[in-house]
Design a protein around this nucleic acid. Structure first.
Lengths: 122, 122
DNA sequence: CAGTATCCGCTCCGATACTG
DNA sequence: CAGTATCGGAGCGGATACTG
């Protein structure tokens, strides 16, 4: 689809809510962005997302796998190794999210300032 | 910032989580996208986001105003009219979110299929 | 190493009633 | 018309203990 479509022609905006509800949780995006570099194993991901609990990482990875955004590969070694990597769809989402990341970085200070002004005005 | 920066150079991904946590709720994006066309009044927005409750619309608008993404203008008429419109920052966010919207539409069916396959495989 | 299982607090959000 | 106030359920996410 063409991103340059005119504003008024944006189709079915309700679907956006679904996706944002899906990736808008606390951890999903961090994991996706992290896997963009290269496939990683469970505990490697855990180390690179320092605050995530084991349970939430499990849930997040499972949900991503269910949605076809990452694949889970088990190597029959001892100890067992499980590697997670982005699918093509997952990679395209990661790239898309980068636009939002850029926006976030660009407007971080602006939002902080706006909040401070708003709060003191009350 | 340059969106074409190399993957590994994406700065401070943790900030992305903040923003996604902020706009990743159930209503914020729908309101922003809606206001992209033109400024709207309270009940006009409510009508165009059919399922939103009055309280959630109030909260959503207030949070957006606090973040400097929309402005609230009261006209001293009877009955009172309150108009909400995007700020420049809000508009730029709306445009950025459109990329995600496009991704969502493009991959909607893929995700549905992935889930169906995953669920039946269990 | 890579998970499961259980408990539990907290916040999101809906429903409803009320107000200037 | 444009809100505010209050109650309550559901689910996200944290902490901890346990397992193949």
């Amino acid at each position: 689809m063409d991103v340059t479509t005119k504003p008024d022609e944006l189709p079915d905006c309700s679907g956006v809510g679904d996706v944002l509800g899906r990736i808008g949780d606390k951890w999903t995006v961090q994991v996706i962005v992290l896997l963009r570099r290269q496939p990683e194993r469970f505990n490697a991901i855990k180390r690179r997302v320092p605050k995530i609990s084991q349970q939430m990482l499990t849930r997040t990875l499972k949900a991503l796998e269910r949605d076809g955004l990452i694949t889970r590969t088990v190597r029959a070694t001892a100890p067992p190794q499980v590697e997670y990597s982005l699918t093509e769809a997952g990679l395209s989402l990661a790239e898309t999210v980068r636009h939002l990341a850029v926006w976030a970085v660009d407007h971080r200070q602006y939002i902080r300032d706006s909040r401070a002004r708003y709060d003191t005005a009350q």
